[in-house]
Nucleic acid binder design. Structure first.
Lengths: 248, 248
DNA sequence: CGCCAACTTGATGGCTGTCAAGTCAGGTGG
DNA sequence: CCACCTGACTTGACAGCCATCAAGTTGGCG
């Protein structure tokens, strides 16, 4: 599929394009499966857009929850902090993915969401989303699927943290990124990391030096070429094989 | 006629008692916050009850999803398996908690749910639950909260697996169990573990020997008294203090 | 009563954390 | 435009926590 050409700087056009019905992420994001008419109703909800600069917090742990956020462009991390300062990155999110689901539980956010590059999000007031999803069965069901998918993803991370060794974790991480870039029409084998080694390490339960060493090792073994944040995957099968190596 | 009527009454009585509206878990479980009338409608959904013996699977990864399950009594674990046989226990569930949320995502279960003691569950057909929650706002919202709570819980486990040391993990685990037993009216300080050391280890990302050693260490330090599966917590503050000790 | 799974405890080793030093890259100001 | 500065990254040496391997103990259950 060809990338969409932005042939006009017309403001109206840009507003139209900002609606779900014209968003090229609609197959990845919340509107998935909705009819034209239904999507039009969702458009009414997604009124508020917001730009964030790299380093900005979309929300912080402890602040009031009232909306979930769809990432229109950019890249985020979510993390939780312990009182003693330890950080656990709980996920990296890219365009089309939802942020803020953690806040539904208590009406307060339980983690921090930080933009790792300049980003743009659509805010979806949660009460209104619930109202609409009582009317639109498809929307309701899809939203439930999205929440469930998040739970399944978390189980995968637990598996990774609980049973895998350092190199397996990094291999799984790279393959997951690759797959998600592919789903967005980018190269599966050539991309830039938006996060630091320390953030990768926090996500994978490793120290940054260990992450760095694993990258170097993968390069020595010809699985990838890595220069700072630029990663090229040379041998997908090799990485997959790494993932299945049990602790000996 | 009389015996017949008695039998009928007994049956009715037992049926009534099995409904959400008369379940003593209703404050913990799905019916939370519903009015009498609304709970009556939920009762109609929760028609199917099922008993499981220790060791029985409630569902398996890969099988079709069509219902979520509320635990009426008993104790479960959920786990995911890697092709190479590695197991990750993703959670332990007790009465009033829901099982099967992972299946919504793909219509197939992604993990196994196993009874760790003789248990009883209520099956809630998911499509019917969605239908009802389009009509009952309170039910809809509470269900969303339950799913979100699961996501938040998973983040806690990630924190545990990603940043904590063995003794911190076990301390957090024991305190969490204690708190959940308390919520169910049991002693916070004296309980029986339903799972093996190996299962605890899998959940905590440790080997069973490490779990065993940590138990012994806690006992030496006077934090707990443990004899096989019987645990008594002697010093809650001591365990909490352990949780906040950074890797030195 | 005997069997076996579950558990405990000890000895040893290895993966990864810690500490340290140096390199690289991008951004800023002169 | 280049020098500088700083955060990010890499690499090495060493250490410690936990896994592994092994042997023995306990307790539940047929």
């Amino acid at each position: 599929m060809m990338p969409q050409q932005n042939t006009s700087q017309d403001l109206n056009l840009s507003l139209v394009k900002s609606a779900c019905s014209n968003c090229n992420l609609r197959e990845l994001c919340l509107p998935f499966g909705l009819s034209e008419a239904e999507m039009g109703r969702l458009d009414e909800l997604v009124s508020s857009r917001r730009r964030l600069k790299k380093g900005d917090n979309l929300y912080r742990a402890g602040t009031r929850f009232d909306a979930i956020f769809a990432i229109r462009s950019g890249f985020f991390k979510t993390d939780v902090l312990l009182e003693d300062g330890r950080e656990q990155v709980t996920g990296f999110q890219m365009s089309g993915e939802l942020l803020g689901l953690d806040g539904i539980s208590t009406e307060f956010h339980t983690c921090n969401a930080v933009a790792l590059e300049d980003s743009e999000i659509c805010a979806i007031p949660f009460t209104r989303l619930e109202n609409l999803s009582r009317e639109i069965k498809t929307l309701q069901h899809h939203f439930h699927k999205v929440m469930s998918r998040e739970i399944v993803r978390d189980h995968g991370v637990m598996m990774l943290l609980g049973t895998m060794r350092a190199e397996e974790r990094l291999a799984a991480f790279l393959l997951n990124l690759s797959q998600r870039f592919t789903a967005r029409g980018y190269s599966h084998a050539d991309f830039f990391l938006r996060m630091t080694r320390e953030e990768i390490g926090s996500y994978l339960g490793l120290k940054l030096e260990t992450v760095s060493r694993a990258f170097s090792r993968f390069q020595e073994d010809g699985h990838i070429a890595v220069q700072q944040k630029h990663v090229r995957i040379l041998n997908v099968a090799g990485l997959k094989a790494l993932m299945n190596n049990q602790r000996r």
